[in-house]
Amino acid sequence: MSDNQQDVIVQVENVDKFFGDFQALKAVNLTVARGERVVVCGPSGSGKSTLIRCINRLEAHSSGRILINGHELTDDVKDIDAVRREVGMVFQSFNLFPHLTVVENLMLAPRLVRKTSKAENRELAMKMLARVKIQDQAEKWPSALSGGQQQRVAIARALCMNPEVILFDEPTSALDPEMISEVLDVMIDLAKEGMTMICVTHEMGFARSVADNVVFMDQGEIVETGPPATFFDSPKSDRTRLFLQQILSH
């Protein structure tokens, strides 16, 4: 993991997050370099979703600093907008816009945020749809697609904004088992092409094969991090051991 300033895309420094009296994040530190694939795992309520939602300001961190590509994330709308242009997100419940067709879903943000022409957008959209292998569904309504197909469209939609890093918030948790692999395959392809990603997931097989770094969170803190080999085979902390026992025992 290089600490070269130019190579660091996401830097989380000593971040706390409170929801009223409840502390969801405790002094969290995380550095993600360009091209790095990070998997964040942990029991429910550990703060993993909160952490990545703070990175694109869907939640506002209470204290500490978050920097994306050197740009600090503050209350200032300009900062927030600048960050969101660089950071893509894929949600557990896909969140495709139901009143737009698949290709319109992809074309909307480039048109409004980057203000590129319709022709360019369409070309980009079709290219991204091809990348996730779903170009033949371009004119369909999202409601006509299966869960796995919708999630792949969601990934393509995030890709159309050409982000520096993509955040995945439990992308396969809402899918029927037979559709999980089609989405994971797309994510593995992205990883192979060098996309920087932070992925909250329970899919440990994915973590083992794709991740450069696995982060284990529990009760708002990062308990342990490490490359998959050490993380899975020789975890340092008891809590990590316990979690791995529970999640790998099926």
């Binding site: 694109n56 300001r57 869907l58 709308v77 907008d81 969101r84 242009r85 950071v87 893509g88 997100m89 949600f91 419940s93 969140n95 495709l96 816009f97 139901p98 909307l108 943000a109 409004l112 945020v113 969601a154 939609r157 995030a158 904004m161």
Partner: peptide
């Protein structure tokens, strides 16, 4: 709410 969040994550402004 998820739709609004997805739009925000894509960089759309509040007005958009």
């Amino acid at each position: 709410r998820g739709l609004k969040e997805a739009a925000a994550a894509l960089g759309l402004s509040t007005r958009q």
